[in-house]
């Protein structure tokens, strides 16, 4: 879902960059309060894993592919503030070295994938995690959090493109949500598998617990 240069007009990409810059500043100041020295390498490993996983496009249907975004994965395992820093780092490296996502669109891409996706995932996970207990409940909460994070990012991406005057919202929105409803299933499955594996390793059992690796309340 990396927006290239050329899809957004200046008012949208400047606006999105301003919102993203504010969110990043808040992420730095919030992680600063909770992150411990020994937890720094975990952020690096999560960022490396998400970058690698994003390279693996899986086919969804009719000649379209998708890949993990990782916003939900990072938010559920390390917290939404750390997730924002992780996804932003991935997006900046992807833009600078691989030109995946445009230079002017970086702010919008950060907003969609490093801010909106992790927070929607985190909110959904906390909400549903409080409703359903036990392992099965956690699995459902994780899956839906991941699926919704992709849908929310696709919605934001559609709005940015439509309000740039590139294509009408009524045209771009149904198409984006349709494809990403399918891609989101892949996101949900991968997130469930990795989260259940890593949380067993880290002893994370329920939402609300402090992440051993990230310091944030999950």
């Amino acid at each position: 879902m990396h927006i290239p240069d050329g899809f957004l007009d200046p008012k949208i990409w400047v606006g999105a960059s301003a919102v993203s810059a504010g969110a990043l500043a808040a992420a730095v100041s919030n992680t600063r309060k909770v992150l411990e020295d020994r937890q720094v390498p975990a952020l690096g490993v999560m960022a490396a894993f998400i970058f690698a996983a994003q390279m693996i496009n899986f086919p969804v249907a009719g000649g379209t592919s998708g890949h993990l975004l990782g916003g939900a994965l990072a938010a559920i395992l390390l917290g939404p503030w750390s997730a924002g820093l992780i996804l932003t780092t991935v997006l900046v490296i992807q833009m600078l070295f691989f030109y995946d996502g445009g230079l002017t669109a970086l702010g919008a891409n950060v907003l969609n994938m490093a801010v909106i996706a992790p927070w929607v995932a985190y909110g959904t996970y906390r909400l549903l995690g409080g409703l359903f207990r036990g392992n099965a409940g956690r699995t459902v909460a994780t899956f839906l959090a991941a699926w919704l994070s992709v849908m929310a990012a696709a919605l934001a991406c559609s709005l940015e493109i439509a309000f740039s005057g590139t294509v009408p919202l009524a045209v771009v929105l149904p198409a984006m949500l349709g494809w990403h409803a399918l891609i989101g299933i892949g996101e949900g499955l991968i997130t469930v598998v990795v989260v259940s594996f890593v949380s067993r390793l880290w002893g994370l059992e329920q939402p609300g617990q402090k992440s051993y690796a990230g310091g944030e309340q999950l």
Binding site: M1, G63, S65, T104, V167
Partner: peptide
């Protein structure tokens, strides 16, 4: 990895705005 276009690229192709990204390389 699948070489098929991803969700956004596919939509841009189908809805005819993919060309807007071509030749716009800034870096």
């Amino acid at each position: 990895a699948s070489p098929s276009p991803d969700g956004l690229e596919r939509v841009a192709e189908d809805k005819g705005f993919l060309h807007l990204a071509e030749g716009k390389e800034l870096i």
